[in-house]
Design a protein around this nucleic acid. Structure first.
Lengths: 150, 150
DNA sequence: AAAAAATTAATTGCACACAATTAAACATTA
DNA sequence: TAATGTTTAATTGTGTGCAATTAATTTTTT
């Protein structure tokens, strides 16, 4: 132990390689990047794509419902949805039965995107180099953690 | 099949619940949120904390090396590092042997943060409700995917 | 019904992320 | 060595994320 190393002894728990959080954070961004060239063809960002996945499934959802499902708040969703509205892909209107809520609906151009996007999931999966079994196991483990933390 | 449902038949691969990307994206944000109250005490954001994890381990790193390890580019790192410099936690100087590189070093106040942060990993782990075995398995699986994708 | 509490979006301000471009320094090649 | 190409940060512009606040509406309580 020479005294030209005055810094604290390394704490293994404080090393990046031993963190769970970092691979989660980095992998999430890398997967988003894997989507990017495919989504660019559709003029969509990744969070915008997630909104459409929900709208293609449910036709109409309030901002609240979108936020609950995506774990995003109005500070993120409101400007994102306004950009989609400007492109005439979605509609935004107050719920007449509860004027607090804003209902997001699909416009024809937004619905038409679904067909163009249908190949996206398998194309990303192909880049992942995972067996369907591994894929399913990891998906369930992540979802389990998510429900425990959210 | 009634004709008041003019929309396309749902594609299972286009349902949010069947995606791997979404739990990854959402869990990553939730885990970052779990760090937030702990890091707030240190006046740190999560990506700033990651920078310090590396600096506590290596004392000095170039912006390039930080970017390679964190998978972040200068567009993200430069302003982040300038904020840390303004707090007198790190130093930024050109490498005299290669004036293209900027060397990031720890200042005393930045080094002193390590001790205050040493409990953070275990406190976050406690919130995760996972066995160490599960933790380790997931960590390695995520790292494996990351190296395949990055 | 009136007052208080809760719910829903929007807004504001700050900090990432990242694509694309620029500029400086260094390396390689003709 | 001069020209070309590469590497490294910084810059610019757009789009999230999110904490905190605000404003309008609805619900609950008194």
């Amino acid at each position: 132990m020479s005294n030209d190393t005055p810094h604290t002894a390394p704490n293994p728990l404080q090393q990046l390689d031993n963190q769970l959080c970092f691979p989660l954070y980095a992998l999430s961004r890398m997967v988003t990047k894997a989507y990017q060239p495919l989504l660019q063809e559709l003029d969509l960002t990744y969070p915008q794509y997630l909104v459409f996945l929900l709208l293609w499934e449910h036709q109409e959802l309030t901002v609240k419902e979108l936020g609950d499902k995506l774990l995003l708040d109005s500070g993120t969703l409101t400007p994102l949805l306004k950009r989609l509205e400007q492109k005439h892909w979605i509609s935004r209107r107050r719920d007449p039965r509860d004027e607090r809520s804003v209902i997001i609906g699909l416009l024809p151009a937004g619905r038409a995107l679904q067909e163009r996007a249908c190949k996206v999931p398998e194309q990303v999966f192909a880049q992942l180099d995972m067996s369907p079994t591994e894929f399913e196991a990891l998906r369930q483990q992540l979802r389990h953690l998510l429900t425990h933390l959210a």
